[in-house]
């Protein structure tokens, strides 16, 4: 039984609200005892977490806390990073991703938005049509429909509908970031990963993208890595605090802000005394 947003927020107790919404939800991502090393350097130590279906899971923490390495391990991008060694088990939708047969299909089920917008050196249209084409969609009419739908959902359609044929790199920074979100959506992902997406985006555009994410949560699980503590508070159902390769604490987001936390370091970070 999944309650709507409004119902959840109406409940005064955030912890109860979370349980009401997600106790019956299946586990989408399960991370067990994950350790990541680059050569001699350990960047992530014994991380355990589980993310429920349709949850927005926030990860906060300063630089070098291992957040991006975790994301890389999730869609098996570690294969392309020489020297990156992943130990432990990650299961997505119940499948151990280390033994998954087709890693490309796994990646297609996970949309990733990078910190700085990466417009492929293609037109706006081709940027969004890229993943469907990889998936074998050849029919132009079908591609048109997919591209329009994804651009609409990323709140970009009205701004670019007249220049779908110009290069994606000619868009402004905020538009490019929404373009990468549209592109991630074109994969029809189960999981959307956002790695500090607002780092190069103005506050107004950031709020527009946040509104988009609130809509998307109905259809997919969202993993939101952010260095804006308040962004996690606005969006995330639960939030994990990472520090120096360690997952210090995981809690209901609202509880982290309003109730006593388990670890003093979490409190310091959230209140702006460190990091």
């Amino acid at each position: 039984m999944v309650a709507t947003d409004a119902e959840a927020h109406a409940t005064s107790d955030p912890e109860a609200a979370w349980h009401q919404r997600f106790d019956s939800a299946p586990i989408e991502i399960e991370v067990n005892d994950l350790t990541i090393r680059y050569g001699e350097t350990t960047v992530l130590r014994g991380v355990n977490l589980d993310i429920r279906k349709n949850e927005i899971f926030g990860i906060i923490g300063p630089a070098n806390s291992g957040k991006t390495s975790l994301l890389k391990a999730l869609n098996r991008m570690d294969m392309f990073t020489p020297g990156m060694n992943v130990q432990g088990r990650i299961r997505i939708n119940g499948c151990d991703i280390q033994t998954v047969k087709n890693v490309y299909a796994l990646r297609r089920s996970i949309g990733v938005v990078f910190p700085l917008p990466v417009g492929l050196p293609l037109t706006v249209f081709e940027n969004v049509a890229f993943a469907p084409r990889l998936g074998g969609v050849k029919d132009q009419a079908e591609l048109d429909i997919i591209v329009e739908r994804c651009l609409r959902r990323a709140a970009l359609w009205d701004e670019v509908k007249d220049r779908l044929d110009s290069l994606g790199s000619f868009l402004s920074g905020g538009q490019q970031q929404r373009l990468t979100i549209a592109r991630a959506l074109s994969q029809d992902p189960n999981i959307l990963i956002l790695d500090e997406f607002s780092i190069a985006v103005d506050p107004v555009t950031t709020m527009r993208i946040e509104d988009v994410l609130k809509e998307l949560r109905k259809e997919m699980t969202i993993l939101l890595v952010t260095n804006l503590v308040q962004q996690a508070r606005r969006l995330a159902d639960r939030t994990a605090f990472f520090l120096n390769g360690e997952c210090v604490e995981i809690g209901m987001t609202e509880c982290l802000f309003t109730r006593p936390v388990l670890d003093q370091r979490t409190k310091d970070y959230i209140e702006g005394r460190c990091g």
Partner: peptide, 28 residues
């Protein structure tokens, strides 16, 4: 001279090495 971030972005979308080369790197 083609930036690595293009390759990473395409790979993250599930493109195979050859697809990345043929559809992204060579045109660029």
């Amino acid at each position: 001279a083609v930036p690595d971030r293009y390759r990473e972005a395409a790979e993250a979308m599930g493109a195979t090495k050859w697809q990345v080369t043929f559809r992204v790197v060579l045109p660029a």
